[in-house]
Design a protein around this nucleic acid. Structure first.
Lengths: 125, 125
DNA sequence: CAGGATCCAAATCGATACTG
DNA sequence: CAGTATCGATTTGGATCCTG
């Protein structure tokens, strides 16, 4: 299976409201985080893994590839030994910055509220 | 303390960057769309189904319930026959409006680009 | 009308092992 | 270092039937 997708299917016939387009690009489980960390500069593969140990190697690879295919992320390969690959936002990718930053603000402000809501939810089960 | 934790909880909303919190709330496959349609007023269950035939009854129910539990959506039940249920944004939910609207703008602007990128991707398979 | 319940298929994820 | 490959587990989705 050489083309497993981690994002959503996006055949044109399914395209509905514009919000869906955006969520399709940044809504993957780890894409927002990847994008967020790319805002302050390029990152290497293992830098991401240190920043976010919870994401597996496999998922990181898959999500980066999709962002690359959507033209959001640029992948620069240095032909050295040991290998070195740097990921950065493309110009197009930068157009997502305002959204990511707004999401960051919202998350910072309301994180505890969400955590509480979900904790209560669990107690009730 | 009835909620003492022995290990560390790695559930997304408790750890990591704030962007993840936000995506956790609005990133569900249909949540963005639901939220988008709620911005311009309350909606009934079957109204959503007409606006978005692609979403199944089951998925609509599940996603609405999650938004409700997170305090984003309010569910008003009218005890009538036939039954009537209206969904609306809570005050808290309204704090997400700027993000949703920004996502809508981005989607409108770049929709075609994304569709093309993914069309090419498919040709290559 | 607005769903709940059930069952099954498909998509997605994670752990592990391996490689240029 | 930066990945691939593989496999089993989990999650999610869809179809169908049922109900107050």
């Amino acid at each position: 299976m050489r083309n497993q997708k981690v994002g959503f299917d996006y055949s044109p016939s399914k395209v509905g409201c514009p919000v869906e387009t955006t969520l399709d690009v940044i809504g993957g489980k780890w894409k927002g985080i990847i994008l967020y960390h790319l805002i302050d500069g390029k990152k290497r593969f293992n830098e991401f893994r240190k920043l976010y140990p919870a994401i597996t190697q496999r998922m990181l690879t898959l999500q980066l590839r999709e962002l690359e295919k959507d033209g959001i992320v640029h992948r620069e390969i240095y032909k050295e030994i040991p290998p070195k690959v740097e990921y950065s936002l493309t110009e197009f990718g930068r157009s997502l910055e305002p959204i990511i930053l707004l999401m960051k603000d919202w998350g910072e402000t309301h994180k505890n509220r969400i955590i509480n809501a979900r904790a209560i939810e669990k107690e009730e089960i």
